[in-house]
């Protein structure tokens, strides 16, 4: 199933080899996953909830430590990086979360400035504690996502789509070479979802970023990415360039597996 395995190492942004992740409670979230993502590719990661998509993304920037296998991002081995080297690596990997990860009470500007913490020494509190040059840069990023007017508005006063755009501006502060996006549009209405995905795609093309993005909506994944990788129960079950795929093939990833147990739990919760 592997399509792209003939690229030179220097052109590889992310290389995952036989990666496994077992959580302390025993769940095997990733089961021997191998994946190679060339520079500048926009990859959509699809699969049911609990199929291991988020875990895979989180392993890529060291938010989760793998229990087996190897993860190399931009030539750095994430699985062995720790402390300072891990922080340095993270500084060059953008991460966009489903729930945005904004500090609601802080202004948009401050939330964007947080993206530069990896290049600064010492703690910061409040916009004024950041150097003016960085503030100017933050404003430019806000401009890029179309929210410079809201710079000093509290983040929790924005709509969901706007919040996600602030979160993207925060990632842009890192000048990332790789952007990881974990269900960036799952909490948004269709209109905002399109806006946010278009924004990510535009920026990725402009800056030559590699993007790995988990998505729920198959149509979005088909219309938007270069390549689609499907996960089921922690294993890669689909890996194709977008052009060769039909919707039915992709839907196959979502084929129901072992649902009776899930049903049991749900009915128990409802009656409780």
């Amino acid at each position: 199933m592997q399509v792209i395995n003939t690229v030179a190492d220097s052109d590889v942004a992310v290389k995952v080899t036989s990666l496994s992740k077992r959580f302390p409670n025993g769940t095997l979230a990733l089961d021997n996953v191998s994946l190679e993502v060339p520079r500048g590719q926009v990859l959509a990661l699809i699969g049911l909830s609990g199929s291991g998509k988020s875990t895979l993304l989180r392993t890529l920037n060291g938010l989760h430590a793998p229990t087996g296998g190897k993860v190399v991002v931009q030539g750095t081995d994430v699985s062995t990086a720790n402390g300072k080297s891990l922080r340095k690596l993270r500084h060059h990997i953008g991460f966009v979360f489903q729930q945005f990860g904004l500090v609601g009470r802080a202004t948009c500007m401050e939330n964007v400035l947080v993206g530069s913490l990896g290049s600064l020494r010492g703690p910061r509190l409040g916009v004024r504690s950041y150097p003016v040059a960085l503030r100017r840069k933050a404003l430019e990023q806000l401009e890029r996502v179309g929210l410079s007017e809201q710079a000093f508005q509290r983040a929790d006063t924005l709509s969901g789509g706007q919040m996600q755009r602030v979160a993207i501006a925060r990632s842009l502060m890192q000048e990332p070479s790789v952007l990881l996006a974990d269900e960036p549009v799952a909490s948004l209405d269709p209109e905002s979802a399109n806006q946010v995905l278009d924004l990510i795609l535009r920026i990725a093309r402009e800056d030559g970023m590699t993007v790995i993005c988990t998505l729920h909506q198959v149509e979005l994944a088909l219309g938007w990415s270069d390549r689609i990788v499907g996960l089921r129960a922690g294993q890669v079950v689909l890996d194709q360039m977008n052009a060769q795929l039909s919707q039915d093939q992709v839907m196959e990833v979502y084929r129901a597996t072992g649902t009776p147990m899930q049903f049991e739990t749900e009915s128990a919760l409802q009656s409780a």
């Binding site: 920037n61 938010l63 891990l86 922080r87 340095k88 690596l89 993270r90 500084h91 060059h92 990997i93 953008g94 991460f95 979360f97 729930q99 945005f100 990860g101 904004l102 500090v103 609601g104 009470r105 802080a106 401050e110 947080v114 993206g115 530069s116 913490l117 990896g118 600064l120 010492g122 703690p123 910061r124 509190l125 979160a167 925060r170 990632s171 502060m173 890192q174």
Partner: peptide, 27 residues
């Protein structure tokens, strides 16, 4: 959620505390 996001940009533990915990804790 914001704490994880701040760690993901490569911030240190103390930076993360001031950037995400302190503003949330102040009120």
């Amino acid at each position: 959620a914001p704490r994880e996001a701040v760690l993901a940009v490569g911030a240190g533990k103390i930076q993360e505390f001031f950037a995400s915990v302190v503003p949330q804790f102040m009120p």
